[in-house]
Amino acid sequence: MAAGGDHGSPDSYRSPLASRYASPEMCFVFSDRYKFRTWRQLWLWLAEAEQTLGLPITDEQIQEMKSNLENIDFKMAAEEEKRLRHDVMAHVHTFGHCCPKAAGIIHLGATSCYVGDNTDLIILRNALDLLLPKLARVISRLADFAKERASLPTLGFTHFQPAQLTTVGKRCCLWIQDLCMDLQNLKRVRDDLRFRGVKGTTGTQASFLQLFEGDDHKVEQLDKMVTEKAGFKRAFIITGQTYTRKVDIEVLSVLASLGASVHKICTDIRLLANLKEMEEPFEKQQIGSSAMPYKRNPMRSERCCSLARHLMTLVMDPLQTASVQWFERTLDDSANRRICLAEAFLTADTILNTLQNISEGLVVYPKVIERRIRQELPFMATENIIMAMVKAGGSRQDCHEKIRVLSQQAASVVKQEGGDNDLIERIQVDAYFSPIHSQLDHLLDPSSFTGRASQQVQRFLEEEVYPLLKPYESVMKVKAELCL
């Protein structure tokens, strides 16, 4: 049975990233139509530049190519590739079939990587351009969430054990800070992308030097003109047959890092959902379990974690691919890159769409948070109580021993009897502590235990987050809708 299948058929496997999760716009960027249309555009740009620099290419040939950029006979191309065992030459023939007058000058002087690699770089750039505003929107939604809850005390956790208090907004800023680093890295790697350009079979530009009869300047002009037509500021000066596969490492490393950030955020949300302090959106008709109707599973956060793990592992592909590119190139890269580049971007696209949807509907339960604080705060307040007693004339050592005994009794009630923490009640009825009984409410005010959390939130948002989001103001209103 021949390899390949009808990918629109229910009898043929289709990647869930495309069929179930990723956005239509990201799927289109990695589609065959987008790819092969870009090949034709690159052939047109090459012909236009070659004509401008004096090669015998007519206006009629150029116009014929322009008129057929979208006229792609995919069936013919597939048949040609089956016959020739070469995808680029299959599309040269297919393009030439609908451009008979231009057929002889299509791909003039070029090698397969002229269309293959340059198209990949265009796709990487455009895919990054799709991700950047999506990530900015996630940051914006979380920034709104953090600002609104900047002063809401909550129990902090280290080692997932109760620690000092923080605020809900401050905790959210930990998430935002990681995503801001990801946004900066995505922008950097996007701006650092260079075009492969017009380089020939081993990167020496020998074929173009021959076409222009040894004119170095025209060869350099050709490279520059096509690079500018493709919208790049610069091209690699040095290439082998391909652009260095280190570029793929750079791009997928940034995406993998984004995956790590999203995994951490969504894990926190899942843990908070278990504590009943916070939940992701839950639709009115949504079913959490087929057997347990009360369940409210954090399905979206779980999906993000599941896909983020996949995204983090994909960076190993370009690392290994770059390491086995012998001399000017081997074909070890080809099949692998067809999979890992598309999957990385479709996965990143999915987790950003999902995280935006989550961040637009996060639900906080202040009463649950308050109750958990009441359970733990008495123990945390013991040092403040000791200091207040010393100020009232008591002995630190005597007070410490009193607190120690009462704390152990209260802990026994919590752990052995399943009761509430009654340390404060014990202190309130103990005559030894009568000098500070009137101060206990103040000493137990949760806001006095959150330090500068709310001020940190305000400063972080104003100095770091809002300036970073400013270039994306025009796209901030787009909502994230999930079908599944």
Rank of each mutant, 00 (worst) to 15 (best):
S434I: 08
L252K: 02
L186I: 14
E48N: 05
R270Q: 12
R171I: 00
F212I: 15
D332G: 01
K284H: 03
L155M: 04
Y365N: 15
E473G: 14
Q455K: 14
P293I: 08
G394I: 04
M380H: 02
V465S: 04
F282M: 00
T450Q: 14
M225V: 07
P366L: 02
L423F: 14
R37K: 13
V363G: 08
R33T: 07
M316V: 09
W175Y: 12
E383Q: 00
G197T: 08
I106Y: 04
M292I: 01
G394E: 11
Y13N: 14
T158N: 03
D441C: 12
R194I: 05
L174I: 12
E283D: 05
P133N: 03
E50K: 07
F449M: 05
K477I: 09
L209F: 14
L275N: 03
R37F: 10
Q409H: 07
F157L: 06
I358Y: 08
L377D: 02
F345I: 09
K264D: 04
V457I: 11
R396V: 09
K218A: 09
L131P: 09
R190Y: 05
S15N: 10
C180L: 13
N185M: 13
P435W: 00
D441T: 07
S359A: 08
I249A: 06
P298C: 10
Y472D: 07
Q375L: 08
I287C: 13
Q61S: 06
E370I: 14
P153T: 09
L355R: 01
A77G: 06
P318I: 01
D398P: 09
D6L: 10
G109H: 04
C266L: 07
K233P: 08
H442A: 14
R20M: 03
I57E: 01
Q356L: 15
D11R: 14
R196C: 13
Y243S: 14
R196K: 11
P162A: 06
R459K: 11
K415I: 11
K391T: 15
E473A: 14
D333I: 00
E360H: 07
A2N: 10
P298F: 01
V115G: 05
L331M: 01
E464Q: 13
T204C: 11
M76K: 05
T313G: 14
S23Y: 15
E360S: 02
K66V: 02
A235S: 11
K82S: 09
V168S: 06
E25D: 06
M181T: 14
L84F: 06
F449E: 08
F195D: 02
Q210K: 14
G231C: 07
I105T: 06
F232H: 01
G116H: 06
V390L: 03
T52F: 04
E383T: 07
L468M: 09
F160G: 08
G214C: 12
V226Q: 04
V251W: 13
H7I: 15
I237W: 08
F95S: 05
R426M: 07
Y472R: 10
E360Y: 15
L468F: 07
N357P: 03
E417Y: 13
I424L: 11
E464G: 14
C99M: 13
K246T: 04
S447Y: 14
D420F: 05
K276N: 08
T450V: 11
T350D: 10
F74S: 07
Q205R: 00
A22P: 14
L482W: 13
G96P: 08
P366Q: 08
L252M: 09
T354A: 13
A230W: 04
L377Q: 00
A480V: 15
L377C: 05
